[in-house]
Design a binder for these strands. Structure first.
Lengths: 198, 198
DNA sequence: CTTTTGATTGAATAACCAGTCAATTAAAAA
DNA sequence: TTTTTAATTGACTGGTTATTCAATCAAAAG
C-alpha cells in the first residue's frame, strides 16, 4: 500500500512551499526573467523536473508570489486600521511594522517582488491584470483617506494628500531597495519618515 | 567616391547615440536580461544586425549606460558642492536639481539603470566591478561629509549621519521608481525631503 | 519481501535569442 | 552614369534554457 492521501498532501504542500520560498529568494535578487528554473531547483535542493510537477511554468510561480505579496501588504494596512489612536499614530504603527519586517527577512523579499511586478514590463500578463484590476488596492490609495482624516484633525500638514502618500510610499520602497543593496545598513527610525507629515 | 571620413564619423556618432538612447528606454522598463537586441533595434528603427555593427554585445550597451549614469550622478553632486551656502542649502539645491531632472525625462532613466545595476545580480561582471571599484563614489558616501558639516553647524539633527544619508538616498530612489510606475504623479517639493534633516 | 502509488529524476526535445556574415544599399564624387 | 566605400540588412548558426515525459525511487501496508 502506498502513502495515504494526507501524507501525500503534506509532502506536496511542503514541496511547493520549498519551491516558492526558493523562488522568492532567487527572483528578488536576479529578477524573474534572469532566473532559470534550474536556479530555483538548485536553491530548493531538488530537480528541475520536480518544479514542473508542482508548477506549470516560471510565470505561474512568479504570479503566485505577487499574489502573496499583495495579500501581505493588504494585511498590514488592515491591521493598522484596527489600531487605536489618531491617523498619524496608525501610520506610525504601520511604519514600525514594515521596518520591523524589513529586518527579519521574508516580507521584505515579497516587497521587492511587488516592486518588480509594478515596475517591469517583463512580467506575465496575469500579473499586469492583477495589478490593474479594480479589487487591487494600492498602498497609496489606501493611505490617502487616512491622511485626509489626519489633516482634518490638524495633525498632518495641509498639502496634497496624494502627494504625501506617494512620498511616503516612495520612501518605503526606497528603503526596501536599499536594504537589498546593503543588508547590513540600519533601517532608520519610524519617526524620521513620520516627520514628512508634520 | 564614397563619403568623407567626417561624414561617416557623424553617421556613426548619430547611430550609436540612437542605439544608446533606445536601449536606455527599453532597459529601464524591461530590465537588461528581458530586453532583446531586437527590442532595442525596433525602438531605434534599425536592424538588429546594425546594433552589432556598433556594439559588441547587449552587455556592452548596458555597461556604457551604467558608466553614463555614474558620471551624471557625480556631476550633480560636484555641482552642488560648488554652490554657495550652508551644507543644508547645498543638499536642498541638489534635491531640487534631481527633482527637476525627474520631470524632464532622460536623467531619471539613467537613475533607474543605476538602481538596476546596483540591485540585480544579473548584470555584467564589468558593471559589478565598476560599482565596487574604489574610484566609484556612491552618493551615500558623498553625502556623509556634508551632513557631518551641517551637524557641526547645528543646522542638521544630531543622528547617525550614515543613517541620514541612507534615508535621503532611499527616498530619492523610491521617488524615481514611483515616477516610473506613475509618470503623471507629481514630484513632491524638495522641502518635504529636507525635513528629515531637521 | 512484495505490491502499490505517487513523488522524483534527468535525458530528450523544442523554442528562443544572441551574435555572425555574405549580400545589398546609399551617398558622394568623378 | 559609374565607381568606391562604408553603412545597413536579415537569413543563418550555435548555444542556452524552458518544458516534457518515460523511467526510477521510496514509503507504507499487507
Amino acid at each position: 500500500m502506498p502513502r495515504s492521501r494526507e501524507q501525500n498532501l503534506e509532502i506536496r504542500n511542503q514541496r511547493s512551499e520549498d519551491i516558492l520560498h526558493a523562488a522568492l529568494n532567487v527572483f528578488s535578487r536576479r529578477g524573474m526573467v534572469a532566473t532559470k528554473i534550474s536556479d530555483i531547483a538548485k536553491e530548493a535542493h531538488l530537480s528541475h523536473g520536480l518544479v514542473y510537477h508542482y508548477f506549470a511554468s516560471k510565470e505561474e510561480i512568479f504570479t503566485r508570489l505577487v499574489r502573496r505579496a499583495a495579500d501581505s501588504s493588504v494585511q498590514i494596512i488592515e491591521q493598522s486600521q484596527l489600531q487605536a489612536g489618531t491617523p498619524l499614530a496608525k501610520i506610525k504603527w504601520m511604519t514600525e511594522q514594515i521596518f520591523q519586517s524589513f529586518s527579519e527577512g521574508q516580507y521584505i523579499l515579497l516587497f521587492l517582488i511587488m516592486i518588480q511586478a509594478s515596475t517591469s514590463d517583463a512580467v506575465p500578463d496575469e500579473v499586469k491584470q492583477l495589478l490593474s484590476s479594480p479589487e487591487f488596492k494600492s498602498p497609496v490609495s489606501c493611505l490617502v483617506p487616512l491622511i485626509v482624516e489626519g489633516q482634518q484633525r490638524q495633525e498632518i500638514i495641509q498639502q496634497d494628500p496624494v502627494q504625501l502618500a506617494v512620498a511616503y510610499y516612495a520612501f518605503i520602497q526606497g528603503l526596501a531597495i536599499n536594504k537589498l543593496q546593503w543588508p547590513q545598513a540600519p533601517v532608520p527610525d519610524a519617526e524620521l519618515i513620520i516627520k514628512m507629515f508634520k
